[in-house]
Amino acid sequence: MTNQVWYVAYGSNLALARFTCYLSGGQPPGGARMYPGCRNPTAPARSAGVLVPGGLAFAGASKVWGGGSAFYNPAADGELAGRAYLLTADQFADVAAQEMWREPGGAYALAVAAVLPSVTTLHSVGDGRYETVVRLGELDGLPMYTITHGTIGVPVAPAESYLRWIATGLVEAHGWDAERVASYLHAAPGVGLGWTLGALMSLLDGGAGGGG
């Protein structure tokens, strides 16, 4: 297996400025956490907007943003809008470790890196929120992976700052306008519990391109 893999982001990491906190460390505006960063803080070699089968859902409780956390549901009808970042396998593992508030380069990160070559569909490295690795096919001959929860749970509405980052990333990765971003987000389980389509449009018109 090549050392390069695609990490497919679908939540706030869609936005490059926010994802950079996972790579080089830092605290994103609106977030309640300082990230240590990867052992290798190098920026992604490339990025690309991708659409994969499945869907976006919000559930649980985000310790960074408040409200529900974003998850990928591979069994959902429709398409998930993601952003693929070309990283090293070790960077992917360190991102996965930070999602679970674990140390980059620690035992969990090493376990994720070790299992990647054998993941053909889904592989649960643990039972935590982002401990299921999903292979999403290939892009330009290299494997695409994302991480999610094996059991997503009851829908919960996401927080405003979280939605702003996700919207920013959708604009960056896919070039969508505010109406399309709002429609996509509103269709995700959890969002409608706290946001009308009109409220989303108002939110995004005020900051879909700015983030934070």
Rank of each mutant, 00 (worst) to 15 (best):
Y85H: 09
A89M: 06
V115K: 12
I147W: 01
S118T: 12
T132F: 02
T132R: 11
G150A: 15
S118F: 12
G78W: 01
P143S: 12
P117I: 07
G106A: 08
T88S: 15
F92P: 08
T132Y: 03
L80S: 05
V95R: 02
A84V: 05
R102V: 00
E103W: 10
V112I: 13
H123S: 11
T88R: 01
M100S: 13
A114M: 04
L142S: 01
E103D: 13
A96D: 04
I147K: 06
D90R: 12
G150N: 14
D77L: 11
D127F: 09
A111K: 13
L136V: 10
T88K: 01
G105S: 08
P143V: 12
L136A: 09
G128Y: 02
H149G: 15
R83V: 11
Y85L: 15
T121S: 15
V133D: 10
V119A: 08
G105R: 07
L87V: 10
G82M: 09
T148A: 12
E138T: 15
E103P: 03
V133H: 05
A84R: 01
I152V: 15
V112Y: 03
S118G: 11
D77F: 03
P117T: 10
A81M: 13
A97W: 00
D140I: 00
A96G: 13
V95T: 10
V115I: 12
G150F: 12
P143A: 13
L116R: 05
A96R: 01
Q91D: 11
T151D: 14
E103R: 15
S118P: 00
T88V: 03
